[in-house]
Simulated scan of single mutants.
Amino acid sequence: MSPVQINGPENGHTRSATVAPGSLVFTAGAAPIDADGATVAPGDVSAQTRQCMANLKVALAETGASLADVAKVTVFVAEHLQADLVVAWDVVTAEFGDHKPAGSLLGVSVLAYDDQLVEIEAVAAIPS
């Protein structure tokens, strides 16, 4: 059982999440890079978001956590159109399924890798 209690959601957005005592996991930003360090799907927000989520799952698994343990997710999108933020958010929420962690969606100017449009970081709670 996950130590994350979701407070909300209201109007499709979770207001907050409460975690039980245990360990917190703070991930670095998961980038849309493959095993060789190459940026996946330049120009494709949806495909890059899926790769970021795959990389995020690996980072969480290394700590014994999963998406079900995530209390907070932050999605960064380096695009100029608000619609592209929605595209990324739709992929993220689909990956989480029924689990709806608190989240932030940000439009930014630039990200670290060439052709990178998306980056995702998370805070997860692992039961003690």
Rank of each mutant, 00 (worst) to 15 (best):
residue 2 S to Q: 12
residue 4 V to A: 03
residue 5 Q to G: 03
residue 5 Q to H: 14
residue 5 Q to C: 05
residue 5 Q to Y: 11
residue 6 I to N: 00
residue 10 E to G: 06
residue 14 T to G: 01
residue 14 T to N: 03
residue 18 T to P: 08
residue 19 V to T: 15
residue 20 A to L: 14
residue 22 G to S: 11
residue 22 G to A: 10
residue 33 I to N: 01
residue 33 I to P: 06
residue 35 A to M: 07
residue 38 A to M: 12
residue 43 G to V: 01
residue 45 V to M: 10
residue 45 V to N: 09
residue 46 S to R: 12
residue 49 T to I: 04
residue 49 T to Y: 02
residue 50 R to E: 15
residue 51 Q to Y: 01
residue 52 C to G: 14
residue 55 N to E: 02
residue 56 L to K: 08
residue 57 K to A: 11
residue 60 L to S: 03
residue 61 A to R: 04
residue 66 S to C: 03
residue 67 L to T: 02
residue 69 D to H: 15
residue 74 T to H: 04
residue 74 T to Q: 06
residue 75 V to F: 10
residue 76 F to D: 13
residue 76 F to K: 15
residue 77 V to A: 05
residue 78 A to S: 09
residue 79 E to V: 00
residue 80 H to S: 01
residue 80 H to M: 00
residue 80 H to I: 01
residue 86 V to P: 00
residue 87 V to L: 08
residue 88 A to T: 10
residue 90 D to K: 08
residue 92 V to Q: 00
residue 96 F to H: 05
residue 97 G to I: 05
residue 99 H to W: 02
residue 101 P to S: 10
residue 102 A to G: 09
residue 104 S to G: 09
residue 105 L to I: 09
residue 105 L to E: 00
residue 110 V to C: 04
residue 114 D to R: 15
residue 122 A to P: 14
residue 122 A to T: 12
residue 124 A to N: 10
residue 126 I to L: 15
